[in-house]
Each structure stands twice: as C-alpha cells, then as structure tokens.
C-alpha cells in the first residue's frame, strides 16, 4: 500500500487546511462544513457519561494538549509553560452533530516506550482505554522529535488525527510546515492550529468527527524496521503471538514491546489476557475510571521501607 494515496472511496473527506492557522480558513466546501459543525459544538464540561465516542489527547509535554482540551470542553484544566504541568488524566465532554464525545487529557509523554509513571498513564490509556480517535498534539517547531510519538501511535491505532499546534511560533521562527503534505505522508488528517489563540479548533473538531464516524478513512503510515537483526528477531515472535492469540491486532508492536521487556505486556502474556480487550481493560479500568488523584498512583515503595 502506498502511504501517499488517500482512499478515493472516502466520502468527501475533510481535507486538512494547509494554510498557516493565523490566516483565515480556506473558503470552499470544506470551510462550509467546518462552520456548520462549529455552530453545533456544545461544550459539556465534566458531563462525560454515556458518550458515543472517546477521544484521547496524546503528545509530547508542553505542546498544548490541555489548551486544546479546554477549548473543546469549556473546562479550565491547568495550563502552564513547562513540561509536566499535567500529571494525571482529566476528562471532559463535548457534543456535536448530535453525538457526544468523551475527551481525555493525558500527561505529556515523549514516547510510548518510556516508563516513567505519568507517561505510563498516557500509554495505558492509548493501549487499553480503547479511544475511538487519538489526537496527537504536535509542536510544529520541533516536528522531527514530535513525529516519533505520532509514528508509534500509528503502530497501535490507525484512528489518529495530528493537531499541528504552535503554528504561530513556527511562523515567528521562520519555519513553514506543509500540513497537506504531512497528511498525505502519514495517511491521516493533519490540522494546523494555534490553540492558544483559538485558531484551528473548528478544523480539529471536524477532523475528529470525520475520523470517529468513519467519514475519513485513514491510511496509517507504518515504519519499516528494515531487514536487519530486529526484523529477523521480531518475525518469529510475531508468528508465535499470532498462534497463541489469534486475531491479535498490532502483533508487531506487541512483539517489540516484549523485546523491550515491557512489564505490563509480559504480565498480560503470563495471564493469557493479551489482546483480550475486556480482560486487559478490566485490569486497568479501576485505575482509569476513578479520579486520577486517588487511584492511578500505586503506593511508593522505596527499598528503605521494608
């Protein structure tokens, strides 16, 4: 499959707007539908029960996830100009086109492979929380490093939207990012925005809706590890995984995580619950469902205590 071609069958996919966000939105079919949706946005604050879709906000620290979250829910999640401001999950909701969306603001993480505690909260939610759409908020001024987590997310789920945030700063720094080309390259919608100034929120909303409802069929780009030692070692593990857990999606990602000694994956293999979304979710759900402040943090047990 060629990552450069969008499925022609997708009915009127919402084309990401490629202009810098500080210019007026393009006029045309897309702009119209965007505005129709905008009128329908109802910020629901914390009333997140009985939602039709779940949206996760993922991305490097300090890229504007909480800012986007606030814009969509009308809540006032704390925002601050330093990495690590958000350390637990926050949930809110919005409604558009008669559908209700639960949206989850996650702590920032540099990659889905790291295992610092607040980063695991984010990763676990993407892996087991079953989001319908994952919005990866990306810093346009540090695109290269930010793309790593986008590519990793695309290994786990194809239902991804990239929010190309901080376009105002990119412009000030003389960087211009071709959102349309990026979207073609990744096979997913890419929305340029400046969330702090309210720019691009409407387009992001439109992209979330079209991916959630399936109106935009993504064609997720997958990274090739080449033909080296890694691929040679991954393949038998992937075959074994397919045998043990038939129907398991993302065997390559799971195999890679096992090779990297990922504890929660190894535990899931031991318990035989790997890929059984319900069992795995049941294990993490108490953590994910209750107030993050109370329960997502296991006891701190330094050596000295025993």
């Amino acid at each position: 499959m060629t990552p450069n071609s969008l499925p022609a069958s997708a009915p009127a996919p919402v084309q990401p707007v490629a202009q810098p966000a500080n210019q007026p939105a393009a006029h045309g079919a897309c702009a119209t539908c965007v505005h129709a949706r905008h009128d329908a946005l109802r910020r629901l604050g914390v009333r997140a029960e009985a939602a039709d879709f779940v949206v996760a906000l993922l991305g490097n620290p300090n890229t504007g996830k909480s800012t986007v979250f606030n814009a969509l829910t009308g809540l006032r999640q704390h925002v601050g100009n330093w990495p690590g401001k958000t350390v637990s999950r926050a949930e809110g909701a919005f409604e558009t086109d008669g559908k209700k969306y639960r949206i989850v603001d996650l702590p920032g993480c540099y990659s889905l492979c790291s295992s610092s505690h607040h980063e695991e909260i984010a990763r676990d939610f993407i892996l087991f929380g079953g989001p319908d759409v994952t919005v990866v908020v990306v810093d346009a001024t540090r695109l290269e490093r930010n793309l790593v987590i986008v590519l990793q997310t695309l290994e786990i789920t194809g239902r991804v939207v990239v929010a190309l945030n901080l376009m105002d700063e990119a412009k000030r720094r003389g960087l211009s990012v071709d959102a349309r080309a990026l979207s073609r390259r990744l096979g997913i919608p890419v929305v340029p925005m400046a969330a702090r100034h309210g720019k691009g929120i409407d387009d992001l909303l439109a992209a979330i809706v079209s991916v959630a409802t399936g109106a935009y069929e993504t064609n997720p780009h997958r990274v090739h590890y080449g033909n080296g030692r890694l691929t040679a070692r991954l393949e038998p593990i992937m075959r074994q995984l397919e045998q043990l857990f038939p129907g398991l999606p993302n065997t390559r990602w799971v195999a890679l995580r096992l090779l990297d000694k990922d504890h929660s994956m190894i535990q899931a293999v031991r318990e035989g619950t790997l890929g059984n979304i319900e069992a795995m979710t049941a294990r993490v759900m108490p953590r994910l469902d209750t107030d993050a402040l109370q329960d997502d943090q296991p006891a701190l047990v330094p050596e000295e205590r025993s």
């Binding site: 695109l143 003389g174 960087l175 211009s176 990012v177 071709d178």
Partner: peptide
C-alpha cells in the same frame, strides 16, 4: 519533506 526551514534560527 514537509518543513521549510529557511530561517530556522530566526526569532
């Protein structure tokens, strides 16, 4: 491919 970094140290 997608970033034009002509004046990347400006600002």
């Amino acid at each position: 491919e997608v970033v034009d970094a002509q004046g990347r140290h400006q600002g």
